[in-house]
């Protein structure tokens, strides 16, 4: 604490508002609009927690998660996804995620989870 957080989502409004939320709470925040960008940024900034969307152009969230966990097993990954099937959630955990949060979520809820994890 305070942690470095990387937020990855291709939906610009979600990305911007989460960035605003976590900055206001004093986190160091980086944002990426797609998987490729996210991996590059993670290599550079070495965040300890990543908020990760799954459905993105080019590289999807699962691949990004694999990449991050391979580089740094200690890194915390929270999937933020609209994919609501049980199988989707299971897949998220199978890829090593620490948490799978279904969109939409409340900001408080998200903040609490992130706090617990960091």
């Amino acid at each position: 604490m305070p942690s470095k957080i990387l937020i990855v989502d291709d939906e610009i409004n979600i990305l911007m508002s989460l960035e605003y939320l976590f900055k206001r709470k004093g986190y160091e925040v980086f944002i990426a609009r797609n998987g490729t960008e996210a991996m590059a940024l993670a290599d550079k900034e070495e965040p300890n927690l990543v908020l990760l969307d799954i459905m993105m152009p080019d590289v999807d969230g699962y691949e990004v998660c694999d990449y991050l966990k391979a580089k740094n097993p200690a890194i915390k990954v929270v999937f933020l996804s609209a994919k609501s099937k049980k199988a989707d959630v299971q897949k998220g955990y199978d890829h090593g995620a620490d948490l799978y949060l279904l969109k939409p979520f409340s900001n408080k809820e998200l903040l609490n989870h992130v706090k617990d994890l960091s």
């Binding site: 939906e11 409004n13 979600i14 508002s17 989460l18 605003y20 939320l21 206001r24 459905m55 933020l80 609209a82 994919k83 609501s84 099937k85 279904l102 969109k103 939409p104 979520f105 409340s106 900001n107 408080k108």
Partner: peptide, 24 residues
Amino acid sequence: YTVSHELRTPLTAIRTQAELIEDD
């Protein structure tokens, strides 16, 4: 399933932003 996915995405943005305004 797909419709729900497509609904959740803008809803997420709305909720997050509305809560930001509400809480701050």
